[in-house]
């Protein structure tokens, strides 16, 4: 907090002059970067379409309303598939995430120099890449369909779940583990009695949380051909059947709200 004399009175300033200068420079750079980014976007944009946008939006709106309600009869199977993609994907992901988490946590990893970096690499690489990209890749490999969706969701969720679980493992109370060790328990028994009960609530919370996210993600996987309600969305968009599109969007919205409600209820019940 710099205080200095100016014309005989003490002047207080929040920052020294060098600090203020630095801040100005930082702000200036940031603004310049933003302006550059905006210019790039602007150059790549056909502004004629943008000025025309309100008219187009209105046009789409009139075409999309009212939704084609009777189309819902054809959505039963896609909704079922979507639910399965999310649920099975989450279950498979959890099966892999638990061992990865144990390998990644500092206090349970078998080897901090070899195994832990590999586990962390698995976590960061599966987490960084969106499930749509995984789906794209899997469709190229195993063909379009629900299976590609399940596997894509599973892979994407491994890193997410493993990260949260290993953080929970690192935070456990060590004396409880010590107490179980002191009874002469084997390595696996220590894990089952000393560690697992302590991370169980975190595990359940992560599972439900991820399931909720996966419902959202699985609704759009069909856009690239990986099954679920997104397939209908994609084909309706292709034939510009806007009333069907609006109905599908409503269904997706309902699914998202419902899954969030379910996951909130379950988490309340657990914790």
């Amino acid at each position: 907090m710099p205080v200095y004399e100016k014309e005989g009175t003490k002047v207080w300033q929040r920052r020294t002059q060098a600090e203020s200068l630095m801040r100005w420079a930082a702000w200036l750079t940031a603004t310049a970067v933003f302006v550059y980014c905006w210019q790039q976007i602007s150059e790549a944009t056909t502004w004629f379409f943008v000025w025309d946008a309100p008219r187009i939006a209105e046009d789409i709106w009139t075409r999309a309303t009212p939704p084609r309600w009777e189309y819902i009869t054809q959505l039963g199977r896609p909704i079922w598939d979507t639910l399965n993609i999310a649920t099975l994907g989450t279950l498979i992901a959890l099966c892999f995430a638990v061992p990865v988490a144990f390998m990644a946590a500092r206090n349970t990893t078998p080897s901090a120099t070899f195994v832990r970096p590999i586990a962390l690499l698995i976590i960061v690489s599966t987490r960084s890449i969106n499930s749509l990209i995984w789906a794209l890749l899997l469709i190229a490999v195993i063909g379009p369909g629900v299976l590609a969706g399940v596997v894509a969701i599973a892979i994407r969720s491994i890193g997410f779940c493993a990260k949260l679980i290993y953080e929970a493992i690192e935070e456990i109370d060590h004396t409880q583990v010590e107490a179980i060790t002191a009874t002469g328990a084997s390595r696996w028994q220590v894990m089952a009695y000393g560690i697992v009960p302590q991370i169980a609530p975190a595990f359940a919370g992560v599972a439900v949380f991820r399931w909720d996210i996966n419902i959202r993600e699985s609704t759009v996987l069909g856009l690239v051909g990986a099954g679920g309600i997104g397939l209908q969305l994609s084909s309706s968009l292709n034939i510009l059947a806007w009333p069907q599109v609006s109905l599908i969007l409503l269904v997706i919205l309902a699914a998202v709200v419902l899954s969030e409600w379910v996951s909130a209820k379950v988490r309340e019940a657990i914790i």
Binding site: D173, T175, Q176, E178, A179, I180, A182, T183, Y193, G194, P197, Q198, A200, P201
Partner: peptide, 12 residues
């Protein structure tokens, strides 16, 4: 062994 902070596995 008996511990200072009891060291029971609290969720069991």
């Amino acid at each position: 062994m008996i511990f200072q902070e009891y060291a029971l596995v609290e969720r069991l």
